[in-house]
Structure formats: C-alpha cells, structure tokens
C-alpha cells in the first residue's frame, strides 16, 4: 500500500505544484505536513481542489474535500479513486 501511495503522490505533487503561485514552495513541504500551515494559501487550495476534480473527471464529495489537507491525504483521495 505504501508504494502505491508513493506512486500516486508523485502525480499529486505535480498537480499541486501546477496550482501554486510559487511551485517551489511544495519542495519544502513533506507529504504529511498540513499544506495551509506550511504556507499554501486558501486560493491555491481551491485551485488544487478544482484540479483534482478535473483530474478525476468528477466532483469530490464534501468528505473528500475536507480530507485534502496534505499531499498524502490528497494522494489517498485520488489514489482511492484510481484503485491504487
């Protein structure tokens, strides 16, 4: 399971970086760290959520959206949908 998450995490990191004003910020943030606490702003988080929906081709549920606080949590949400 860990390796599956790691595979998805690379995709997620690329997806998140594309939606940050300063992509290099993500390089300073470990997978388990809260993104907002680490300096990602609320507007960027909205763009990440929209990008995840576009990636999956469906709307995320409220539960999924509320879970998306770290790279690992986002990876889990997307990984689950991808059957990882």
């Amino acid at each position: 399971m860990t390796s599956e998450i790691s595979t998805v995490s690379a995709t997620v990191r690329a997806l998140i970086q594309r939606n940050l004003d300063t992509p290099a910020l993500l390089d300073l943030i470990a997978d388990d760290v809260d993104l907002v606490a680490a300096g990602v702003n609320s507007g960027e988080m909205i763009r990440v959520a929209l990008a995840c929906e576009n990636y999956l081709g469906r709307q995320l549920s409220d539960t999924e959206l509320s879970r998306m606080t770290s790279v690992r949590e986002i990876a889990t949400v997307l990984g689950t949908d991808l059957g990882a």
Binding site: D21, T22, A24, L25, L28, V36, G39, V40, G43, E44
Partner: peptide, 19 residues
C-alpha cells in the same frame, strides 16, 4: 529560492508570498 520562501512562510501571511 528555498531560503527566501522559508522566510516568507515565517514572517508573512500566505497571500503576500511572491509568486
């Protein structure tokens, strides 16, 4: 760049961070 970003995270609200 990483050092500058870290300074921003410490001292500035996130909406003030340079892109």
């Amino acid at each position: 760049e990483a050092e500058l970003l870290a300074l921003c995270v410490t001292w500035l609200a996130s909406y003030k961070r340079p892109s």
